[in-house]
């Protein structure tokens, strides 16, 4: 039966329960980075205003892995999107949905990336809490 291409593909793209959640991973990284940066700034500026330099390094230390994570998600989603395979023969099947979720996840990593860079910018430029 496995040489039936339709069935094979149906199995490969069988109901991805977690895939709707996967869409949100990019924005979730942005959100986590945002909360960490804001929380750290709030605590440091309230309790240890002199420690601005370590705070800026800490934000940089959170930003780089966050950006790397988003890029990694984007790469996975790009592969799932399968942009260069424009074979229309398996139109309207599970694969379409599979690729759609990849495309949407990929597109969502773009504003997540930009948003994360934007969040890091104030820490790059502001040399003081005040």
């Amino acid at each position: 039966m496995i040489d039936d291409p339709t069935l094979e593909q149906e199995q490969e793209f069988a109901e991805e329960e977690a895939s709707l959640i996967k869409l949100t991973f990019g924005p979730l990284i942005w959100a986590a980075h945002f909360v960490l940066s804001y929380g750290a700034a709030a605590v440091v500026c309230a309790k240890f205003p002199a420690a601005i330099a370590p705070l800026r390094w800490a934000i940089a230390g959170v930003t780089l892995p966050a950006l790397a994570g988003i890029l990694w998600l984007a790469w996975l989603a790009w592969r799932q999107w399968d942009f260069f395979d424009r074979d229309e023969s398996h139109d309207r099947s599970g694969e379409r949905r599979h690729e759609f979720l990849g495309q949407a996840a990929f597109l969502l990593t773009v504003p997540s990336f930009i948003g994360t860079v934007y969040t890091a910018l104030p820490a790059l430029f502001a040399g003081t809490c005040r």
């Binding site: 945002f34 940066s37 804001y38 700034a41 709030a42 500026c45 773009v110 504003p111 930009i114 948003g115 934007y118 969040t119 910018l121 104030p122 820490a123 430029f125 502001a126 003081t128 809490c129 005040r130």
Partner: peptide, 19 residues
């Protein structure tokens, strides 16, 4: 609030323009 905090929210406010 600390200007640094304001900066974060200003940045996010500009980013929301994209979507």
């Amino acid at each position: 609030l600390p200007t640094l905090s304001l900066g974060f929210f200003s940045a996010a406010s500009e980013a929301v323009v994209i979507p």
